[in-house]
């Protein structure tokens, strides 16, 4: 059974103006699912709607069989669905450690420190800068902090909105390598990406979102060469 099952989701900021127009995806355990699509396809709104940040007007979001479609965003985190936004994904005026600690509100008191230590083992850079204001971190380190913070509660599904945005190629490689490790540790990952090549390299399955709906689904390894996909999304760029 899929751990995350999104059925025909309709969502948008303004009533009557849907950006997500009936998109469906599913993700199985330990799977990396990539959502691609041209600019303005509604990828970002789609993943935010699954996270509970964009009002949903129709469809269903099932997490491990439980309907969470209309639940509050903060409750989804507790139920095991974590989300890393693309921008402004850290609290810049708080220290690195406070950024991690603030996400541990639902954990037992004794648990928080051991989870923070876990994060430091995974991202040693953060351990060195634990007392610094998070706003002083580099782009790559911010992304690590945001991912580390999302993992603090041991979610079952980790969703990321363009984790490679604004990062240098070296960091992109590093972030994707880490995501692959996280998946091997037992998590399911759903990510929206512009950087299709890097994302498809670690992904298992991929969806192409066009105009608020999923227009194509396929195995990540072969999606790049699929002529339908080329037509839908990659066409102009690849034949240019």
């Amino acid at each position: 059974m899929s751990i995350l099952d999104v059925k025909c989701l309709i969502a948008g900021y303004e009533p009557g103006l849907s950006i997500v127009k009936g998109a469906s995806i599913h993700a199985d355990e330990r799977e990396i699912v990539v959502i691609l699509g041209p600019n303005g396809a509604g990828k970002s709104s789609f993943i935010k709607a699954i996270a509970g940040l964009v009002p949903v007007t129709g469809g269903q979001v099932l997490l491990d069989g439980h309907d969470i479609t209309y639940g509050a965003a903060h409750l989804r985190v507790r139920q095991g669905l974590a989300f890393v936004p693309q921008t402004d994904n850290i609290f810049p005026l708080m220290t690195v450690e406070e950024n991690l600690r603030v996400a541990g509100g639902v954990l037992q008191r004794g648990e928080v420190q051991s989870r923070i230590d876990e994060t430091y083992t995974m991202f040693p850079d953060l351990a060195r800068q634990r007392k610094l204001a998070a706003g002083s971190l580099s782009g790559g380190q911010r992304q690590m902090l945001a991912v580390g913070r999302a993992l603090i509660v041991h979610p079952r599904v980790l969703m990321l909105d363009e984790p490679s945005a604004g990062l240098s190629p070296k960091f992109v490689e590093l972030v994707f390598a880490r995501l692959n490790e996280i998946r091997r540790a037992g998590l399911t990952i759903v990510l929206v990406e512009q950087n299709a090549r890097a994302a498809l390299a670690i992904g298992d399955r991929a969806y192409v979102l066009v105009e608020g709906r999923e227009a194509h689904e396929g195995r990540a390894a072969t999606l790049w060469d699929d002529p339908v996909v080329a037509e839908l999304y990659l066409g102009q760029r690849r034949h240019a």
């Binding site: 996270a51 509970g52 940040l53 509050a72 965003a73 903060h74 985190v77 507790r78 989300f83 890393v84 936004p85 402004d88 994904n89 850290i90 609290f91 810049p92 005026l93 708080m94 406070e98 600690r101 603030v102 996400a103 509100g105 639902v106 913070r149 999302a150 509660v153």
Partner: peptide
């Protein structure tokens, strides 16, 4: 800490639970 986090970024505060 939650109050400080919320004052810096309310929607991120919801995302972190």
């Amino acid at each position: 800490r939650e109050m400080r986090a919320y004052s810096q970024n309310p929607s991120l505060a919801r995302v972190v639970g």
